[in-house]
Design a protein around this nucleic acid. Structure first.
Length: 568
RNA sequence: CGGGGUGUAGCGCAGUUGGUUAGCGCGCAGCGUUUGGGACGCUGAGGUCGGUGGUUCGAAUCCACUCACCCCGACCA
């Protein structure tokens, strides 16, 4: 491809709206263009790269036994009402009305449709196991699109669905997908880590996420450097330890003037925060919830949400707190009546805690569970952080931020039961099909790849997903043969099946080199009077500092070898 | 939805105690000189100052409403 013909231009300045590095680079290279919040056009360079990622994904899906299909984006809302997700996904679902005023949804994912499809065609255990997948556009009205391609409202996703007759079969399907995912990231030249995850709104038994570590990531991964335990912070369990375990003493009110936060209280009383109980007030689907947790631990709202089985969870407003007769800054589970209490199991990790007094400027000493207060639910609702200790081996956790680029679930019979997707087993009995689902965001993977592979000059494409393998960069000079030779080399390389982006612009060397670095094709070939004297061209990997000379004679062959060697 | 911010040329910005022809840099077009890390000169094109309504002799500038986009939180590939 000639740069003078390529649709899309590089730009020197960083667009003001872009904060994330991948977003900045995608815009500066002219790969994407925004139409609305979370809605983008993909220009030729981005599209080529996406196609390469698709090819890899498709290949691995096929190898894992998947069959490619395409399902409708336009879906009757009744399907979503039947699964219950019209409610649970609520505003995320894009809906529209057809001319007969029937409501349709633009598919945010395809569990409903694929289950209906499976129900149509699967009758016997002989039809199973089966894995179907598609690579296709999804629509989600995200509350907040962000970071360029990292979180968008219209995006291409590879989604696969497995169907099995029993647990053992599900396990097998799940494992083979897991391996396919690992292959995909490796083949794209990306380092993804496998973490245990919360299964979220899709529902189901257990799940894993693949996270690409990068600073601008939305997720936090907690891992144990010793035993290898790795989980999303949303899900991670940890050892909360034991704190002072003295004999329970009688409760006692103490004056704590102006002490509203745990921090202030701890300073004032000169005790560790782990010796206090913190109250956090929530509204869960509009109902008031009193949460108690040890003072040194943050609440994990995902775990809390799961414990409450609620759709919507938010902090209670000041007005709601006051309405319940609770004194903010001194809220207490002791002597609380008529309010649902959820306690983190850390309330059992010690004795004689300091808790709120539910009176202004007052706290209570020597609070013990369950002697002094009751909880409707006691479970793990604490958020794991770096330096917490591993529940398995007691080592301190480390944490890393990253972007979720893949998520796999075991669904069980959640959808098959709702949509009557059954099969006849070997004994002639009807049973619901066991399902799994496996998602992978294509555009997000592209963005994450850039996040992981760039420097201050621009992108450094991993070879397998680079839009072009080679950046051909002649430095024109009047009265020399540079132009002529470049044209010839361009034709030869293309003829040899190499992917070449030919910078045929009449620009100064500085401009060309800077664009070469910005665009980040893996190999740069420079032709100048200087190299021509030696009947050579200069070859340089974008990822490396040093360049070398290669003879023009047999160049295509030599480059192919370099590329083949790099691909291994 | 809650909190914060920004809308002036394709991009980055200035101009905002109201004052007439709205500027600068990059980019773009033409000509010339240049050429191994974003060269230089000259000439030129390009603007509903996000929108609507108001105040005023006069609004990019003041007021009201509104829209869009970005960032932080709840959601997710």
């Amino acid at each position: 491809m000639r740069l003078t013909k390529l649709f899309g231009k590089t730009q020197r300045e960083i667009p003001a709206e872009a904060d994330t590095i991948s977003h900045q680079l995608l815009l500066r290279t002219g790969m994407i263009s925004q139409l609305a919040a979370g809605v983008y056009s993909y220009l030729p360079l981005a599209w080529r790269s996406l196609k390469k990622i698709e090819d890899i994904v498709r290949d691995e899906m096929n190898k894992a036994g998947g069959q490619e299909i395409t399902m409708p984006v336009l879906q009757p809302i009744e399907l979503w009402q039947k699964s219950g997700r019209a409610q649970s996904m609520e505003k995320t679902l894009f809906t529209l009305n057809d001319r007969r005023e029937r409501t349709m949804a633009l598919g945010p994912t395809h569990e409903e449709v694929v289950t209906v499809l499976a129900a149509h065609f699967i009758q016997s255990y002989r039809d199973l196991p089966l894995t179907l997948y598609q690579i296709q556009t999804k629509f989600r009205d995200e509350p907040r699109p962000r970071g360029g391609l990292i979180r968008v409202r219209e995006f291409t996703m590879k989604d696969a669905y497995s169907f099995d007759i029993d647990e053992a079969g599900v396990e097998k399907s799940y494992q083979s997908m897991l391996h396919a995912y690992e292959n995909i990231y490796a083949r794209c030249g990306l380092k993804a880590i496998l973490v245990e995850a919360d299964s979220g709104a899709i529902g189901g038994k257990f799940s894993h996420e693949f996270i690409l570590p990068t600073e601008s990531g939305e997720d936090t991964v907690i891992s144990c450097p010793k035993c290898g335990y790795t989980a999303n912070a949303e899900k991670a369990v940890f050892n909360k330890g034991k704190v002072k375990n003295d004999k329970p003493l009688p409760i006692e009110e103490i004056a704590t003037p102006e002490m509203k936060t745990i921090e202030e209280l701890v300073k004032f009383l000169k005790i560790p925060s782990s010796q206090t109980l913190k109250a956090v007030l929530y509204a869960a689907d509009g109902k008031f919830i009193f949460v108690v947790i040890r003072g040194d631990l943050p609440v994990n709202e995902i775990k809390l949400k799961n414990a409450l089985h609620c759709q919507d969870l938010r902090l209670a407003t000041d007005a709601e707190v006051t309405e319940q007769g609770i004194i903010a800054g001194s809220a207490s589970p002791v002597r609380l009546k008529g309010i649902k209490v959820v306690a983190d199991d850390s309330v059992n990790s010690g004795t004689n805690f300091v808790a709120g007094g539910n009176k202004p400027d007052t706290h209570i000493k020597n609070v013990n569970y369950p002697r002094d207060f009751k909880a409707d639910v006691v479970t793990d609702i604490a958020l794991a952080q770096a330096n917490d200790t591993c529940a398995d081996c007691g080592t301190k956790f480390v944490s890393v931020k990253g972007i979720e680029v893949g998520h796999i679930f075991v669904l069980g019979t959640v959808y098959s039961t709702k949509f009557g997707a059954n099969f006849i087993d070997a004994n002639g009995a009807s049973q619901p099909i066991l399902m799994g689902c496996y998602g992978l965001g294509m555009g997000r993977l592209l963005a994450a790849a850039i996040e992981q592979h760039h420097d201050d000059k621009g992108i450094i494409w991993p070879l397998p997903i680079a839009p072009y393998q080679i950046y051909l960069c002649p430095l024109y000079r009047d009265g020399t043969k540079v132009g002529e030779v470049a044209e010839k080399i361009y034709e030869e390389l293309e003829a040899a099946g190499l992917e070449v982006l030919f910078d045929d612009r009449q620009e100064s060397p500085g401009v060309k080199f800077n664009d070469a670095d910005l665009l980040g094709m893996p190999l740069r070939i420079t032709i100048s009077p200087r190299t021509l004297e030696k009947k050579s061209v200069e070859v340089k990997w974008r990822s490396e500092k040093e360049s070398s000379l290669l003879p023009i004679e047999g160049l295509a062959h030599a480059l192919k070898q370099m590329i083949a060697k790099k691909s291994i």
